[in-house]
Amino acid sequence: MTLLSFLPAGFLDSGPVQRALVTGAVAAVISAIAGVLTLIRGQSFAGHALTDVSAAGGAAAVLFGAGPLAGFLAGALVGGFGMETVELRRRSERDLVAGIMLGLGLGVSALILGRIVSSGSNGGAPVTILFGSLFILPPGVILPVSICGAVAVVLAALFTRPLLLAALDPDLLTVQGGSPRLMRLVHLTMLALAVAVSSLTVGAILSTAFLIGPAATATRLSARPGRTMALAAILGLIAGWGGILMSYKSYDWTDGHAWPVSFCIVALIVAAHLLLPPVFGRLLKPRQKG
């Protein structure tokens, strides 16, 4: 009770806040799992590029009057599988293809958002898509968000070990009778789910923060994959909820002018990345020999 009394009056009773807390939590957990895998694969840029392709999907969904979540998800899936079809022999080429997809995604977003703005129906759409709409989520959003979260968690539980093995060395997985290609597709699906839900939370452009930030911090704190994913999920959760609270309270700090929730969440994620590893790195991670 003492802990809860720290919260602003009515914070937990507010419908928008409840929806923000649930969505933020789901985004943090899926992004943490997908993010650790993405880092092991060295695909930060591809993960980031997906967010911009998913923005085009979100914009299209808004244009046709649908909820942005389905659009974000469809965009991320199309972008991910599009990147997967290009044959790539080198890491630098993969980054280039990610960049090309990103430019394409932003270009298409520009086209659609331009149409939305000029039609005058929804002038705030660009900001909603690009920087998130956590406090204005409609009540019906909880169910699809929860389904996305459940699918990602089930996929992770089913495939954790082959996913990790495929990320570390695809040949090792092949030798053991697994399919690296299938694992790439599972990883892409998880990535798309993570990008879609966090685009809803902090916006398409900043969902990279959820994906890469906590995972990068966790990999510097722990060397064991399972523990790294759990740690990343906890860090993401703290940053997500902390950011929501911070944004809510900032209304009082700067006389009636709230800070954007996406800024608050990203600020906490980056602060954690800068501060935690130097302080706790030696404590949690066994020192390497030699």
Binding site: L39, G42, S44, F45, H48, T208, A209, I212, G213, A216, V270, H273
Partner: peptide, 8 residues
């Protein structure tokens, strides 16, 4: 390899 600094 991980581009984390760039992303952050």
């Amino acid at each position: 390899p991980h581009h984390t600094a760039t992303a952050l």
